[in-house]
């Protein structure tokens, strides 16, 4: 028996994939809003494979012309690769239209988000980096921790507590946790120190350690520092480290940090 040179290999791999959450079965509305959104960033998707997330319309059981949607998306540079969730009928229809089936996403993502979300038609959960901005550049794996606390925050908002004020240096190995509230540090925070707050973090001195705001999942939490030299910044579980150094426009300068979608934005603090 001769040994053949293998022509292919089958392997599993975990790849980041964008999900397009379909929140309506009204094709006209869907197309209109999608077109509007894509006009803002024309080349953003560039044939990125997209999973259609159907759990929001699963209960309605209504059908959707997947072939038509896929064609429309392709026109706009998005490549519909398959569907996630959805009713049995919807999944069958998707297969008919030539789409693949992704195994179901963990159920935790779905109900709470839908209940509280403003009625936008599309919701892109994982945006990839936009190189021109100093954004959270991690891949999907790093983004993921944002999900569970997010859902938690919606369910139970912790009661507001008094702001914790620290007026002495926070040194390496020290960890300060402002539970349920904001944290204000008036002295230096050195490398290896950790500031954690369920609310916002303000540092009115050089900040060289880690700052973890919205620790319980508050996505509206913010970080303000007078001298940005941080090792790590995190809001609601979305974090950013600075292996390549801190972006020049904020390095050592006053800066503010907030979450936009699942991107951590670090911007100079304007006066």
């Amino acid at each position: 028996m001769s040994i053949e040179i293998p022509a292919f290999k089958i392997k599993t791999g975990t790849l980041p994939v964008l999900q397009l959450h379909i929140l309506t079965t009204d094709m006209a509305q869907l197309k209109e809003q999608l077109a509007l959104r894509l006009k803002l960033t024309p080349d953003f998707f560039a044939s990125t494979p997209i999973a259609l997330e159907l759990s929001a319309i699963a209960e309605s059981g209504a059908g959707l012309d997947y072939a038509e949607l896929a064609a429309f998306m392709l026109e706009h540079g998005m490549c519909a690769a398959g569907v996630v969730g959805g009713s049995a009928g919807q999944r069958a229809a998707a297969v008919q239209a030539g789409l693949g089936l992704f195994t179901d996403a963990p159920a935790r993502n779905i109900p709470k988000r839908d209940a509280d979300q403003a009625p936008t038609v599309v919701h892109v959960v994982e945006l990839h980096e936009q190189p021109e901005l100093p954004v959270f550049s991690g891949g999907a794996a790093e983004n993921q921790p944002a999900d569970p606390p997010m859902a938690q925050a919606v369910a139970e908002t912790p009661p507001v507590r008094a702001t914790m004020v620290i007026d002495r240096p926070v040194r390496t190995g020290q960890r300060i946790y402002a539970e349920g509230g904001n944290l204000v540090v008036l002295a230096i925070v050195n490398a290896g120190a950790e500031l954690i707050a369920d609310g916002d973090i303000h540092v009115y001195a050089p900040m060289r350690g880690k700052a973890i705001a919205g620790a319980q999942g508050n996505e509206a939490a913010r970080i303000f520092v007078q001298g940005m030299e941080a090792e790590l910044l995190s809001i609601a579980g979305c974090f950013k480290v600075f292996e390549e150094g801190i972006p020049e426009n904020v390095r050592g300068k006053p800066a503010r940090v907030h979450l936009e979608g699942s991107r951590l934005l670090i911007l100079p603090l304007m006066h």
Binding site: V170, R171, T172, Q174, G192
Partner: peptide, 10 residues
């Protein structure tokens, strides 16, 4: 320097 920082914290 970092170890000294740690000691100062303690």
């Amino acid at each position: 320097v970092r170890d000294s920082d740690r000691i100062l914290g303690i």
